[in-house]
Amino acid sequence: MLVTDRTPMTEAEIFGDCLTHPRGHHEVWEAWRKLGATALRRRGLPPTIVSHEYEAFPRGRVVYMLEPALFTLYADRHLQRSETVAEIVRLFA
């Protein structure tokens, strides 16, 4: 299951020559953990988040490179399967 936290382009943060999500993996994960298992389930997130550190799972990030105007996916090698990349493209439109 892919668990994502997305940002509209209009709310992206400038980082060097890129636009990126303003929150880090640890920050997002800890906010989710504080919600508790029931609230996570209601949001469609796996309740196992509360009992694991974010480092336990493969992670990635989608950034928009201003030059040459394209999206780049930085992903753990476990996420670099064609079906997973296709799902990430679908989720992030």
Rank of each mutant, 00 (worst) to 15 (best):
E67W: 12
E87S: 11
E83N: 15
Y64P: 00
G44H: 07
T84P: 04
H52E: 02
S51Q: 09
V63P: 04
K34H: 06
H26V: 13
G60T: 02
E30D: 10
P8E: 03
M9K: 12
I88E: 00
T38M: 09
L66W: 02
D76A: 08
P47L: 02
R6M: 12
L2R: 07
H25S: 04
A56D: 05
F15H: 15
H78E: 15
M9W: 09
R61L: 10
W29V: 10
P46G: 06
R81Q: 11
A69H: 10
T20V: 10
M65S: 14
D76F: 01
R42F: 09
V62W: 10
M65C: 15
K34D: 05
P22Q: 06
A37C: 05
T48F: 03
D5Q: 08
V62P: 04
D5A: 07
G24W: 13
R43P: 03
V85Y: 01
H78G: 13
R90V: 02
Y64N: 03
T4E: 06
F15Q: 13
V62H: 04
P47T: 00
W32H: 01
E55P: 07
V28D: 07
Y74Q: 11
L45G: 00
A12C: 11
Y54I: 12
H21S: 03
Y74G: 10
W32P: 05
A39S: 03
H26F: 15
L79G: 06
M1N: 10
R42C: 10
T4N: 02
T4S: 05
W32G: 05
E83T: 14
E53I: 09
C18S: 12
G16C: 06
H21Q: 07
E13L: 12
H25T: 09
R23L: 15
T38D: 14
R61Q: 08
A86T: 10
H21Y: 08
R6C: 11
V85M: 02
V62Y: 06
G60K: 00
G60V: 04
G36H: 07
I14K: 11
H21N: 11
T7V: 12
P47I: 03
A86D: 10
A56G: 00
A69K: 14
E13K: 15
S51K: 03
I88Q: 01
A56R: 06
L2V: 08
T20I: 15
F57I: 12
V62A: 07
G24Q: 08
P68S: 03
Y54H: 14
I14E: 14
L79Y: 09
E83H: 14
Y64L: 03
L40C: 03
D5T: 02
E53S: 13
A86F: 05
L2C: 03
G16W: 06
R6N: 11
V89A: 09
W32F: 00
P8R: 03
R41D: 11
M9G: 06
L73W: 05
T20W: 09
E87Q: 13
T7G: 01
E83W: 15
Y54W: 12
G36Y: 06
V62C: 04
G36C: 01
R61A: 06
P47D: 01
L73P: 01
C18M: 14
